[in-house]
């Protein structure tokens, strides 16, 4: 029964990891921008939802504010930081340092406003109920999984059938050729930031209602996203999705054998194993094509 309990918890965690990681992977895969501040997008969305909730504005307004905040942050960062760096032919490392620095700034600003301790959005859906003898699951766990399934379904359809989805895949393949087609790579990149930032929002909101929030958790979110992107295969959205789910499950099931303080080490043990044994990841480009 414990294994089943941990599997359900792992799927819930994995669904949230997958949402965040796919957002990062989509941005990195199509623009080649190492958007380390993706974790800061998570923090902004989570705390905006928390603020709207404690201020009594209600669920819908909270979701709208979190979504608007996440999109605005992603787009502004792209427009005023990444685009100028790329225009001046700045290196990958320059982008990384700029993005990392902005993540630190966001963490500190959020810490100054909301404090550095844990805060939680309390909802009736957060409380576990016994669904069979010895098995306790909070309704929000099912919502997490459903939410992830719905978002991934929409994303799959978008990437496969919409012209912008095809343009995103095209940009990932060959940015120079995108210009030959007469498309605007900057507009497509901005779309990648918009979609990638939106994918963070459900994970941020649900995390606020389950594990709670603190301003420093953006780094953890980013490290998980990075691990899932590498394990899944850089540039592969389905691979990152699978890897996010697998990492969540592995972290949870590891509790059968190790203390909770070691669960993060499990994630990185998996990451190192993939780097050594299968550097292209689960569905990396060499395998996917």
């Amino acid at each position: 029964m414990l294994a089943l309990q941990l599997t359900i918890t792992g799927l819930q965690t994995g669904a949230l990891y997958a949402l965040t990681a796919v957002g990062f992977s989509l941005i990195f895969g199509s623009t080649r921008i190492f958007h380390f501040a993706h974790g800061a997008t998570f923090i902004i969305a989570a705390y905006l939802f928390y603020y709207m909730n404690v201020s009594g504005y209600g669920l819908i307004a909270g979701i709208a504010a979190a979504t608007a905040g996440a999109i605005a942050f992603g787009l502004l960062l792209n427009r005023f930081v990444y685009v100028p760096i790329q225009r001046d032919e700045g290196s990958f490392f320059t982008v990384f340092v700029a993005s990392f620095g902005i993540g630190i700034v966001v963490q500190n600003v959020v810490g100054m406003i909301f404090g550095r301790g844990y805060v939680t959005v309390s909802t009736p859906l957060s409380f576990s109920v016994e669904i069979m003898e010895g098995l306790y699951v909070a309704p929000i766990a099912w919502i997490s999984m459903l939410c992830a399934a719905v978002f991934f379904g929409i994303l799959w359809g978008f990437l496969k059938y919409s012209q912008m989805g095809k343009a995103l895949r095209a940009l990932a393949d060959n940015p120079e050729l995108v210009r030959v087609f007469g498309l605007n790579p900057r507009f497509i990149a901005a779309s990648a930031f918009t979609i990638g930032s939106i994918l963070v929002v459900p994970a941020a909101i649900i995390s606020g209602a389950t594990s709670g929030l603190n301003p420093a958790m953006g780094h953890h979110v980013m490290l998980i996203s990075l691990a899932a992107t590498i394990v899944g295969g850089i540039g592969s959205v389905p691979g990152t999705l699978l890897a996010g789910l697998a990492l969540g499950l592995a972290e949870s099931l590891a509790l059968l054998y190790v203390d909770s303080q070691w669960t993060e080490a499990v994630t990185f043990a998996i990451l190192f194993l993939f780097i050594i044994i299968r550097p292209s990841g689960l569905l990396g480009r060499s395998a996917a094509h």
Binding site: R169, A170, A172, D173, N174, L177, V180, A288, H289
Partner: peptide, 9 residues
């Protein structure tokens, strides 16, 4: 110049 196609499409 080169192959003017997107490999994944």
């Amino acid at each position: 110049e080169g192959r003017g196609v997107f490999p994944s499409l």
